[in-house]
Simulated assay, not measured.
Amino acid sequence: MKISIQLLFVIILGSIIVACKSSVKVEAKNTIEGYTIDELLYEDNFDKVDLSQWIIETDTLRNTAVKVDNKKLIIDVDCGATVWLKDKLSGNVLIEYDRMVVVENGSNDRLSDLNQFWMANDPNNLNLFTRNGTFSQYHDLELYYFGIGGRSNTTTRFRKYLGTGERYLVTDHTDPQYFLKPNKTYHIKTVIYNGTTKVFIDGEEYFSYTDSAPLTSGYFGFRTTKSRHLINNFKVYRLK
C-alpha cells in the first residue's frame, strides 16, 4: 500500500505532537473560583485551649461563655458577642472555617445569627477593640458584614458599614433556602479579591459585591447574638 508524501507528513507530525503533549507535566493550581491560593497566613484548629490570637467582646453575664472545648471555639451567649482575630488583614485573602448553630437544650440555644465582620476599622479610634458586644456599638465602624439567619432566622443580609452610622444594604435574601438549619455544620468561605467580595456557604455563592471604594484592610470577627455556635478549622490564605 502506497502512502502519499502529504499523508505521511501528517502522520509524523501528529506523532510528534502527541509525544510532546505526553512529555509535558501539567501543574495543578490550587484555586478557589479562579483565585489562586498563594500562602497560608493564619490557622487555628482550636486543638489547644488557647485564645491568645483572639480578642473577645461580650458582656460577662452568668449565661455567657466564649471558650475552647473539644477542639472547637464555643460562643455560647445570651447577649451580643464578637470574637476578633487580633491581627489585621489586608489585600487579597480567603477566609474559611466551619460553623454550626447548636439548637438542643442549652439556655442560649436559638436558631439565629451566624454573622461575620471583616475588613473592620474604627475611623474615630486607632484601637478597634473598645466594645462590649452590643450590636449597635458597631454601627459607626467601617466594615463588611453578613448575617445568615438574622432576626430569629428570618433574614440573610450583606451590608457595608460606612463609618458614619450608615449601614448600606447590599443584599437581602428572603427565600428560606438562605436561612439556617439547626445543628448543621456549614463551611464558609469569604473571598476578597481586587475590590470584589464573594461569600460561599457550602460552595454556594450567597453574596457577591464589587465595591467602587473597597475596604482593603481591617479586622475579622465572628459575630452573633443570643445563640450557641461551634467553630473550627479556621484559615486565612493570601490570594494572587
Rank of each mutant, 00 (worst) to 15 (best):
K88G: 05
Y161I: 01
K88L: 11
N121D: 14
V101P: 00
S107M: 13
I188F: 06
R99L: 09
M100C: 09
N108S: 12
T174L: 12
K181R: 14
G163I: 12
Y186T: 10
N125E: 11
W118K: 03
L114H: 00
F179N: 09
W84V: 00
Y186P: 06
I188D: 01
Y144S: 01
S90I: 04
F146E: 04
N125W: 08
Y178L: 01
W84Q: 08
F129R: 10
S112K: 06
I188T: 07
E104P: 01
G106H: 08
P176C: 09
T171D: 11
S107E: 14
Y161F: 15
T185D: 09
Y138P: 01
N115T: 12
N92Y: 04
D98Y: 05
D175V: 09
Y178S: 03
H139R: 13
V101W: 00
T156G: 00
N105H: 11
H173R: 08
I95V: 14
K160N: 06
H187Q: 12
Y168P: 00
T164S: 14
Q177A: 11
I95F: 08
G91P: 02
K181H: 10
Y186R: 08
F179T: 04
G91Y: 02
V103E: 04
Q137H: 13
R167W: 04
L128K: 02
V103K: 05
Y178G: 03
F146L: 11
I95T: 06
Y138N: 03
N121V: 12
P123W: 08
L141A: 01
F129E: 03
S112D: 14
T171I: 03
Y178N: 02
F129T: 06
Y138R: 00
F146N: 09
P176A: 04
V102H: 05
N105M: 10
M100V: 07
R99A: 13
E166M: 14
G149S: 07
W84N: 06
P123A: 10
R159F: 14
D175Q: 04
Y161N: 03
V93S: 02
R151D: 14
N105L: 06
M100N: 08
E104S: 15
T171M: 07
H139F: 11
N121R: 15
L169C: 03
I95D: 01
G147I: 03
L180E: 02
E142Q: 15
Y97Q: 00
N92P: 00
W118I: 07
S136G: 08
T154P: 02
H139S: 13
D175S: 09
S107Q: 14
D87M: 08
I148Y: 08
K184N: 10
Y145Q: 07
L169A: 10
R151G: 11
D172F: 10
E142M: 13
L169N: 06
D172Y: 12
Y145K: 06
K86Q: 10
K88F: 03
T154M: 03
L85M: 12
Q177N: 06
T134F: 09
G147T: 05
L141K: 05
N132C: 05
R110A: 13
W118P: 04
I188A: 02
D140G: 11
W84T: 04
T154E: 07
T156Y: 04
Y97D: 01
N127V: 12
L180A: 03
G106K: 08
L89Y: 02
D113V: 04
